[in-house]
Design a protein around this nucleic acid. Structure first.
Length: 599
RNA sequence: GCGCCCGUAGCUCAGCUGGAUAGAGCAGCGGUCUUCUAAACCGCAGGUCCCAGGUUCGACUCCUGGCGGGCGCGCCA
């Protein structure tokens, strides 16, 4: 149950009974006061509109309201706040309900949506680097959250596999006599994509002859020349393998099936342009074709011109994005390529592209490519900065490869875990150490990114993200491991071989101590938290929740013995521990982060 | 020139369609391990919420104008 939604529904109705217009929002917030768990702030705003006294309205609302099944007290305070203290038994019932439900009481959406999440989308010309990290991590977390909610999530990896650079790369491949490898149908091996790109680029800049050949190669490629395509295909395959190696290491759910790169829309590009023309939107300027938008201005304060065909005849990313939008909004299904039509499309790219998407979305709407009912959202994020506040780079100022970053994260995590295990005098096999280091290292990398509001730039710090103090992955994973160790230590096991528990009445939790109540209250907020994350595309809200949950658990851990308690109290606390661990595990799982049984 | 984002404790950040006394972590100081992992917990100290106006019963939040920083604005993505 989403308690917040429930309160909003009921109090909103009571506001109507009290004389406010239908649909007046109750404005339910968490209360920071000890005498309340939630507060409704809607009366003040409503009273202002009605021209009545807010306190009187609040009194009327409370009279019209029946919260007896969930609240212990409902009081009017201050200028017209309605304070709600939930009933202990209600909270315990919610906890029991959550424990018996693998969705932890999360309501299924009334109308499941088809949500396209466009994320990661690296350029295949180069190896994946830190610039792709945030999109990959944030997008993956959002896809997991939406999927868990019950929506039909379509992951789309809109990789850059069709640009000018590919002419250059193919030409370089030919120069390097890679033809025999390609011809035999074997996968070519490029040890270092980054280096390969650099070589090609150097040649391109240094040799006019090579540059010319590269440009010709692009034309041949786009015209469908078999030889060129074969090389391109081989390079693409090799590059994709690098990507998927990274995804695998990161535990990102993108697969080959989610791949739909720019090249997939190649045939649609002329049609997009023709349709813009048919819609009367296409204009020409200095040989280029594009769309004028009154809603935006350029540097000279004239209306903006969005180019879709270059003066040389080539297409741009705006064209490809329009084709992709149309594909997602129904054309893909119409043509029998896919079996879905998007209700919502999320573009997880850095915030510098915000205006680009505003323009593209606008054109798509105006041209009738995407109906108003389909929600188009640019999920922007800030840059990754080094501790010197400059864009994150190697000491020499070069690009940081994602694979190197991952290796470093795991190396540091392993060092930490090994040192602590030794300090405690615990034996840990190399294999177990590696597994824990992997989960902690990757978890740290992800959590540090996700825990912060995505819109702002974020300062990358190894020290901070691998710290066990504060809102970090290691802290959360440690909190989980501590709970699990209660089960490992005591005779009680969270579940037996057959999934049964060995403590009686495992779902019969009750409130016997304030710390238990606080924990249950926090647990009950899981559903509303997931809802917020899905609505706003802000994974940091989930991180903050999990951190608060861990904090609430520490209250129990410090104040309420579990294994030493007896009878029903012991059972109740064990069940509470298990539920907390499960919610933490699920919550971290929604962020793409694994838990460990010990660390 | 226009537009977008940001400015909260020494540092890194939260602050939920405007709500009651602005919260965490780090760093600083002081406590808590014969007791379920002390990689933890508890306490203390620390803030003109960039500035100035305005709207309102009420503003970190909304509006206007500044200041400071980042980014974008026609043939890269």
């Amino acid at each position: 149950m989403n308690i917040r939604t429930e309160l909003d529904k009921r109090i909103s109705a009571a506001l109507t009974d009290g004389g406010a217009p239908e649909g007046t929002p109750a404005i339910i917030n968490l209360s920071s006061r000890p005498e309340a768990d939630y507060q409704a702030n809607g009366c003040m705003a409503a009273a202002k509109k009605l021209g009545t006294n807010p306190r009187e309205l609040a009194d009327k609302v409370v009279k019209a309201l029946d919260l007896s099944d969930l609240a212990e007290s409902v009081d009017v305070a201050g200028p017209g706040f309605i304070n709600i203290k939930l009933d202990d038994e209600f909270l315990a019932a919610r906890a029991n309900e959550m424990a018996a439900d693998d969705r932890f009481g999360l309501p299924t959406p009334a109308e499941p949506q088809t949500v396209v999440v466009d994320y990661s989308s690296p350029n295949l010309a180069k190896e994946m680097h830190v610039g792709h990290l945030r999109s990959t991590i944030i997008g993956d977390a959002l896809a997991r959250v939406l999927e868990f909610q019950g929506h039909n999530v379509i992951r789309q990896n809109h990789v850059g596999d069709w640009g000018t650079q590919f002419g250059m790369l193919v030409e370089h491949m030919i120069d390097e006599h890679m033809g025999w490898l390609v011809r035999d149908g074997h996968r070519i091996i490029i040890e270092d994509l980054e280096e390969f790109y650099r070589e090609a680029k150097q040649k391109f800049d240094a040799s006019e002859e090579f540059a010319d050949r590269s440009r010709q190669r692009v034309v041949m490629l786009q015209a469908g020349d078999a030889e060129s395509l074969r090389f391109w295909q081989a390079f693409r395959k090799e590059s994709l393998k690098h990507c998927h190696d990274v995804y695998e290491r990161l535990g990102v759910l993108l697969t080959q099936d989610d791949m739909r790169g720019e090249s997939a829309y190649n045939d649609d590009l002329p049609k997009v342009v023709a349709d813009l023309d048919a819609a009367g939107m296409l204009a020409e300027s200095e040989g280029a074709k594009g769309v004028y938008l009154d809603e935006f201005t350029n540097k000279d304060n004239e209306r903006a011109f969005v180019i879709v065909v270059k003066s040389g005849g080539g297409y741009l990313y705006a064209t490809t994005d329009l084709a992709a939008l149309r594909f997602r909004a129904g054309k893909g299904k119409e043509e029998g390529v896919v079996d879905w039509v998007a209700d919502r499309v999320l573009y997880v790219t850095d915030s510098r592209q915000a205006e680009h998407f505003d323009k593209v979305f606008l054109i798509a709407r105006k041209a009738g490519f995407v109906p108003e009912a389909i929600s188009l959202e640019h999920v922007g994020f800030g840059m990754m900065l080094g501790e010197n506040k400059r864009p994150f780079a190697t000491r020499e100022g070069g690009t940081v490869k994602l694979m190197d970053l991952i290796n470093e994260a795991e190396r540091r995590a392993k060092e930490l875990v090994a040192a602590k295990a030794e300090e405690r005098g615990e034996e840990m096999s190399e294999a177990e150490l590696d597994e824990i280091a992997h989960k902690v290292g990757i978890g740290s990398l992800k959590y540090a990114d996700l825990a912060q509001n995505r819109t702002s730039d974020y300062v990358f710090s190894w020290e901070k993200m691998l710290s066990f103090e504060g809102n970090t992955a290691p802290y959360m994973q440690y909190a989980y491991a501590r709970i699990r160790s209660i089960f490992a230590k005591g005779a009680a096991k969270p579940e037996g071989e057959d999934g049964s528990t060995d403590f009686a009445d495992s779902t019969d939790m009750f409130v016997g101590h304030p710390a238990e109540r606080s924990l249950m209250l926090m647990l009950s907020r899981f559903a509303e938290t997931v809802q917020t994350v899905a609505d706003t595309c802000q994974p940091h809200v989930l991180c903050a929740y999990l951190y608060d949950l861990a904090g609430a658990f520490m209250g129990l851990y410090e104040n309420c013995p579990v294994l030493k308690a007896e009878g029903a109290t012991r059972d109740s606390r064990l069940a509470l521990c298990k539920l907390t661990a499960d919610v933490i595990q699920r919550g971290l799982g929604l962020l793409g982060i694994d838990t460990v049984e010990r660390m």
